[in-house]
Design a protein around this nucleic acid. Structure first.
Length: 198
DNA sequence: CGCTTTTGACCGGCGC
DNA sequence: GCGCCGGTCAAAAGCG
């Protein structure tokens, strides 16, 4: 993590234009995948087609015929709303999005502690496991590179943060229209910022 | 000095 | 029951 892992005070929040002008964005590309898996098993796919011509989403998500979709399809929990009272676990929120970037993990404003690394089948690259550093906050994060397109990085968040982001980032508009919790939208937005000029 | 990363071991679920 | 596979633990090293 050579990147600015610690959100510096001059954490710059972007607006539309800074998004484009952002030098950091040069090698970073939000492609268009983002969906969230409900605990009920309904995973709704939110596809944000940017200007990128690549709509990998359907391909990746729909069928195993896509080939590399395994990692993502795994997200769909097949929990059948069992009558188990203990169903209310910590999990419940799961969001994954695929981005095109040369760096593996980007700073989303939270402090993450790596706790594991594994190589999964069908993927020569390793998969990294992170956990939120704050105690009591059991949010987990999983980062993995696409098997064939090393340019793509698949990030999966699991859980909801208890606390505010250590770097107090506020935004005015943009967000919205996502989900009631919209926690992820926070992080997603926060993830885009200027790298420190040093 | 306190924290993170590293890395192999361990463990539990699932398929055979 | 066993072995594969994916996820986590934990001890030691590393870094600011």
């Amino acid at each position: 993590m050579n990147i600015s892992q610690n959100p510096s005070p001059n954490f710059t929040f972007f607006s539309d234009e800074s998004f484009i002008n952002n030098p950091f964005m040069d090698n970073f590309d939000f492609s268009n995948l983002m969906f969230d898996v409900d605990e009920g098993g309904n995973n709704r796919l939110i596809q944000e087609e940017t200007s990128s011509p690549t709509s990998i989403v359907s391909e990746t998500f729909t069928g195993e015929s896509g080939g590399s979709g395994s990692a993502i399809t795994t997200l769909s929990k097949k929990e059948s709303t069992g009558s188990k009272d203990g169903e209310a676990k910590d999990m419940g929120h799961r969001v994954a999005f695929r981005t095109r970037s040369k760096i593996d993990v980007m700073d989303d404003g939270y402090k993450w502690r790596k706790y594991g690394k594994k190589s999964v089948k069908n993927n020569t690259n390793k998969r990294n496991y992170y956990k939120c550093s704050s105690e009591g906050c059991m949010v987990k994060k999983r980062v993995e590179r696409d098997s064939e397109d090393a340019a793509y990085v698949i990030t999966t968040y699991e859980g909801v943060h208890n606390h505010e982001s250590p770097s107090h980032v506020y935004y005015n508009d943009m967000v919205l229209s996502y989900d009631h919790d919209n926690w992820n939208q926070h992080s997603l937005l926060q993830s885009v910022h200027l790298s420190p000029p040093s």
